[in-house]
Amino acid sequence: MSPFVPGTDIRIEGRPGGPLSGLRFAAKDLFDIAGHPTGGGNPDWARQNPLPTRHAWAVQTLLDAGATLIGKTITDEVSLGILGENAFDGTPLNPAAPGHVPGGSSSGSASAVAQGFSELALGTDTGGSVRVPASFCGLYGIRPTHGRLNLTGMLPQAPSSDTTGWFARDAATFARVSEVLLQEKAAEAPPTRLVIAVDAFGFAEPETAAALEPMLDRLKALIPDWREEVLAPPGLVAWGRAQRTLQPVEAWETFRPWIERDNPRFAFSVARGLVLGAATPEAERGWAALTRQEVRGRLRHLLPPGTVLAMPTTPFPAPRAGLPLSALNPIRDQILSLCAVGGLAGHPQISLPGASVAGRPVGLSLIAARGGDTLLLRAALEMEKA
């Protein structure tokens, strides 16, 4: 299926002579494009909210750098999803694993790049919405340091975790785009220390952990000073539970005025998530907030400047599309247990392609200290050459 929002036809030329001239990009349907509705994957959001009069910051920045916008891409409904299936707009094709989900919520953006419609695409990442589709579609994807990018014109979900992210098929393009959006060149030298999160590799399915071993070996050759550590002493599942507590609570707070004003339509799983967020007890919210502080302290300890941490991006490759709701909950919980570190800690994280299980891609993630985004760019460039 096409990665683009049905019924849209958008093309905006980039500024001639910019550093990204000649490249095409697509934008997730959470980013404002002047004169076009921001749908957010929900037909009532587009109908019940005004047309944007300005481009989102990320869209304008890429246009100013010379990239040409070619369309808006499908997203999980109001970005509340991790697999890439949308009850209204459909499920974009995962060309790396036909018949399997592309990952969400930046599903269409990943699909557009993976299918070759564009060289790059904008997504958003709250609980894993760039990292997961990057892993499932075999792409480079980044969740930058939380708070580093201007999010003006990007539809929020859970502001304490939301950030803009992006995809590319190769490291050179990925670095070019990243330097424009981060407004900083890739670090001149690769990381000097490597931490391998043994509990994260243990949490992944054995076939996935084994598939990532050759990439780990290349990484160790690039960074000889390496050691193994437990990422989450309380358990990755506890970290996942904290993110699954905080994120729906914030999502309810974000969308509550719209819901109470307009009573919009939602798919069952999305409505259920919002209801659960509204009903979360204060004690549970307090526990999750304390866990977030614990996660941030742990990452500060593990990641001094110059250090990167390696872990699987997802615990398995893309599941089959169209699974029943009863089968989806444990799949989502497993994925979010690995991805929770991003939203809780706010550290930059990239997913690198290069491994597969039964022909379906799986990504290797690298995490750096807050503000260490360009160190990850250098690591990506060096890994592609290794």
Rank of each mutant, 00 (worst) to 15 (best):
P3K: 03
F4K: 00
T8I: 07
I10A: 05
I12W: 02
E13M: 11
G14W: 08
P19V: 14
G22I: 00
A27M: 10
A27T: 05
D29Y: 04
W45L: 12
A46H: 11
A46L: 04
R47N: 10
Q48I: 03
P52A: 13
W57K: 09
A58V: 02
A58M: 02
V59H: 02
Q60P: 06
D64S: 15
G66N: 10
A67F: 13
L69E: 01
I70G: 04
V78R: 02
L80F: 14
E85N: 02
N86E: 02
F88R: 08
G90Y: 06
T91R: 00
P92S: 07
L93T: 15
N94W: 09
P95G: 09
A97C: 05
G99N: 03
G99L: 06
G103P: 01
G104T: 01
S105I: 04
S111E: 07
V113W: 07
A114E: 08
G116C: 13
E119D: 15
L122F: 09
G123W: 02
T126A: 11
V130E: 00
A134R: 01
C137H: 03
P144E: 01
P144Q: 04
M154I: 15
Q157A: 14
A158T: 02
D162A: 10
G165S: 09
W166P: 14
R169N: 08
R169M: 12
T173G: 06
F174Y: 03
E179I: 00
P191V: 11
P191D: 00
T192W: 05
R193F: 04
V195Q: 11
V195P: 00
D199Y: 05
D199C: 11
D199S: 11
F203A: 03
T208A: 06
L212V: 10
E213Y: 04
P214K: 11
M215K: 06
L216E: 13
R218P: 06
W226H: 15
V230R: 14
A232L: 04
P234Q: 11
L236D: 06
V237L: 13
A238F: 04
A242G: 09
Q243Y: 13
Q243T: 01
T245R: 09
Q247H: 11
P248R: 08
E250T: 11
E250Y: 09
T254F: 01
R256F: 00
I259K: 13
N263W: 10
F266E: 07
S269Q: 12
S269V: 15
A271V: 01
R272W: 09
V275L: 15
P281F: 00
E284H: 05
E284V: 03
R285P: 10
L290V: 01
L290K: 15
T291R: 05
R292V: 01
E294A: 14
G297Q: 15
G297L: 08
R298S: 12
L302A: 05
V308Y: 00
M311D: 08
T313H: 10
T314M: 10
L323N: 01
R332L: 00
D333I: 03
H347L: 03
P348D: 13
P348C: 13
Q349A: 08
I350G: 02
S356A: 15
S356C: 12
R360S: 05
R360A: 11
P361I: 12
V362D: 05
G371H: 02
T374W: 03
R378S: 07
R378M: 08
A379M: 06
A379V: 07
L381Q: 14
E382Q: 14
E382I: 02
K385A: 15
K385I: 09
A386G: 12
